[in-house]
Design a binder for these strands. Structure first.
Length: 335
DNA sequence: CAAGCGTGGCT
DNA sequence: TAGCCAAGCTT
């Protein structure tokens, strides 16, 4: 073991945070729980992910429980967590695992929907001590600084992670790299003075830590104007299931029509699609921001006199966007 | 391979 | 406060 490896591992064993999925020593954990936590934590902060993790295990304590459940129940538990393809993929993969057992190889894990190189390496190293590297946002930052690489490519990152991994305890090593990036080698105001491997860090020596890695160019947020339909009978509301692929896939929501030319055109198109004669009453606006989209919705209300099936919104999975629209309905006991 | 995919915490 | 960012994956 190199000096760097010894020092980082010692630091990790002394400073690792207590987190719900760290119930056993890294390298010996339950693959189901490890996979679930890694999936939930994708692009999601610990404070939020851990709430969903605990609730999820409560309802689906084993992969068999998850496989046996209807997709609808899985999405309901995922409600509000975002990136809903994760929930659909998790459910589909659970059904494969229930049939064939947990994969034991990198390729086996990666063949499952929603499992990429990071998650496959994380699950196998953290649950089985497989000597596989991981590169997430934390590891990327640590490697970029350690080796002064302001704009690292994916290929470079995985090669470095592979060369640096401590093959005697890969699980602990991977978790240590992630932990360092999350608690010491942070994006802004890194705590270099208390970093266990600062003597090995080229960016620290060159006083360039604050420039590395270089910020990624951001895609402009797209403005989207749309019209939404709130069709209610006083207690229930018309909700349709969105397409599985694309925005808010698989979740239920109110009918939406993006404004291509004018708002009146969009509203007319919506009404025609559902065979509605009435024009509806304007009830308000909803603004909703996502990472890359800014929605402006004009919401129209109709009292149902149609054959459209109404349902109670508390029984289906909704996005925050639809929750805001439903809040305009002023109906009691919707949630 | 760049774009699409949610939501909330933090500064 | 408006933007940046968070244990990525898919197409």
């Amino acid at each position: 073991m190199s000096e760097l490896q010894t020092e980082l591992l010692e630091w990790y064993f002394a400073n690792a945070r207590v987190l719900p999925w760290r119930d056993r020593e890294a390298g010996t954990r339950d693959p189901y729980r490890t996979w679930l936590s890694e999936t939930l934590l994708q692009q999601t902060q610990i404070s939020r992910g851990s709430v969903y993790y605990t609730a999820f295990l409560e309802v689906f304590p084993t992969v068999q429980d998850l496989a046996d459940a209807p997709l609808e129940a899985v999405l309901k538990l995922w409600e509000g967590a975002g990136y809903y393809a994760r929930a659909r993929n998790l459910h589909a993969a659970a059904r494969v695992i229930a049939q064939h057992g947990f994969p034991t190889t990198l390729e086996g894990w990666r063949a499952l929907p929603g499992v990429g190189r990071y998650t496959a390496g994380a699950v196998l190293s953290l649950s089985r001590n497989a000597p596989l590297p991981v590169v997430d946002g934390n590891v990327r930052r640590v490697l970029a600084r350690l080796l002064v690489e302001p704009d690292p490519t994916e290929t470079w990152l995985w090669v470095q992670a592979e060369q640096l991994i401590d093959s005697s305890q890969p699980g602990a090593w991977n978790e240590a790299m992630i932990e360092l990036g999350a608690t010491v080698c942070m994006p802004r105001k890194p705590r270099c003075a208390s970093c266990p491997i600062n003597s090995h860090c080229a960016a620290f020596h060159a006083a360039r830590v604050d420039q590395i890695p270089a910020p990624k160019p951001r895609v402009a947020v797209k403005q989207i104007h749309a019209v939404a339909l709130l069709i209610t009978d006083g207690a229930r509301v018309y909700l349709e299931q969105r397409a599985l692929t694309g925005l808010l896939g698989g979740l239920h929501g109110v009918p939406l029509e993006v404004v291509a030319s004018t708002r009146d055109d969009a509203l007319a198109a919506l009404l025609e699609r559902y065979g509605l004669a009435a024009t509806g009453e304007w009830v308000g606006k909803v603004a909703h921001t996502m990472t890359h989209r800014q929605f402006q919705l004009e919401v129209y209300h109709l009292t149902s006199s149609t054959a459209l099936p109404l349902e109670s919104p508390q029984h289906v999975a909704l996005s925050k966007l639809d929750a805001k629209v439903l809040a305009l309905s002023k109906l009691e006991a919707l949630f």
